[in-house]
Write a protein that binds this DNA or RNA. Structure first.
Length: 407
DNA sequence: ATGTCC
């Protein structure tokens, strides 16, 4: 257990709920600071809010924050990409087992794992029994129960999106660690169904506001909430837990597909024991300081003592396999990545294609205008982010990307 | 993030 914590207090006024920020040496936008004050002002938020070094403005809650609540839950704080997170496996392959040109391997992975949104981003009866995963895991039955109670949650893509990547900042990567060992890493969430569940309950929470008598000021409609004891609270917890489980299965299924493609193109290999699958966008009940809390990690990873996590950098930079230090002040958490420093629109305007090509010269990846908003310059320095949280996690492995698939 | 907005 660390004694020299790296956080500083970010809140104003001695009466307000504290905000502890691990933000030494990283930029913190004024808007994000204001958003954190809004969250901390809610009477059911506490004992304090923890801010990770990849913090930036989000919808509802700030991305890169840990928001514990007592007897209440804020669906917009979790957001729509419920259960989004990372998975990584270590293989027995070495860098020398990879071909000099990785273009064919990238094409294979893009064929083996449906990527992107809409048509093309779903699978059509792939021969790996993905549908049985839905029933054997209980995911199918649990979703039916949710849909029976909430008829507006309609989806016919659940099976077809299990084992698929999606778009935006979701990715699949092949990386090398400091000993040139080959790793596979991927980032995705609960796809369309989680989005549907998230948006549905965010809307229901907003509707509830009309019937509530609040003894406090709600600074932002996106901070609408359900109170423990209300039927919608239980229904949201049930649905959000489903989406989190689906997201975890999605990453597992996708990993199996990536490894399958790799087996066709690379020398025979096995998987090492070290494997990680962690959410960074989720809510769950946890006990801290002897108190039962609902902990929302929006762009934050659980980092209990000894627990493994993944902190990816942007395309072409480094990623980290980390081990939690169980820092109590952070509700045992760490950052979920580098964090954006530029909005998607700003990135598209200011980063040129040649800058992107230069920044990703060593990576087999897309180099077209469609991924400019994901270029390294749109993100904070991962080195600075890691330096700001040495009391939260220790680095187990430093990975560098050699191949990256984007939706 | 997303059956992404008609």
């Amino acid at each position: 257990m660390e004694t020299n914590s790296q956080y500083e207090f970010l809140h104003v006024g001695s009466k307000s709920t504290p905000i502890k920020g691990w933000v030494q040496g990283v930029p913190l936008e004024e808007q994000a600071r204001q958003q954190l004050q809004n969250i901390a002002a809610l009477p059911f938020v506490g004992p304090w809010v923890a801010v990770m070094p990849d913090v930036h403005l989000g919808k509802g809650a700030t991305v890169g924050s840990v928001v514990p609540t007592r007897g209440a839950i804020i669906p917009a704080a979790v957001g729509v990409d419920i259960g989004c997170g990372m998975a990584a496996v270590r293989t027995t392959l070495r860098a020398s087992d990879l071909p000099d040109n990785l273009a064919q391997l990238r094409s294979s992975i893009e064929r083996g794992v449906p990527v992107g949104n809409g048509r093309g981003g779903e699978h059509r009866r792939m021969p790996d029994g993905i549908e049985t995963r839905m029933t054997q895991s209980g995911l199918f039955q649990r979703l039916e129960a949710i849909k029976t109670k909430h008829r507006k949650i309609r989806t016919d893509k659940v099976e077809h999106q299990l084992g698929t990547l999606g778009g935006g900042n979701h990715f699949i990567e092949i990386c090398l660690d400091e000993a040139d060992v080959v790793w596979v890493m991927l980032h995705s969430g609960s796809r369309g169904t989680g989005n549907l569940i998230g948006s549905y309950f965010i809307e229901r929470a907003r509707e509830e506001l009309a019937h509530r008598v609040l003894g406090f000021h709600l600074p932002d409609k996106d901070l609408a909430f359900f109170l423990e004891g209300e039927p919608l609270f239980d229904d949201y917890v049930e649905a959000v837990s489903w989406a989190q489980d689906y997201a975890r299965h999605n990453r597992e299924a996708m990993m199996a597909r990536v490894l399958n493609e790799m087996r066709h193109r690379l020398p025979k290999f096995q998987l090492e024991k070290m494997a990680v699958n962690c959410h960074h966008n989720y809510v769950q009940r946890e006990t801290h300081f002897g108190e039962s809390l609902l902990v929302t990690r929006k762009g934050a990873v659980s980092a209990r003592e000894g627990e493994l996590g993944i902190i990816p950098g942007s395309m072409g930079t480094k990623s980290y396999i980390v081990r939690g230090k169980g820092n109590a002040d952070s509700f045992h958490s760490c950052s979920h990545g580098a964090g954006r420093v530029m909005s998607r629109s700003a990135a598209k305007q200011s980063i040129t294609l040649s800058q992107h090509r230069e920044a990703t010269a060593h990576v087999e990846c897309r180099k077209d205008a469609g991924v400019i908003d994901e270029s390294p310059a749109a993100y904070k320095s991962i080195d600075a982010v890691m330096a700001a949280q040495t009391d939260l996690v220790e680095v187990v492995h430093t990975l560098r990307q050699v191949l990256c698939v984007k939706g």
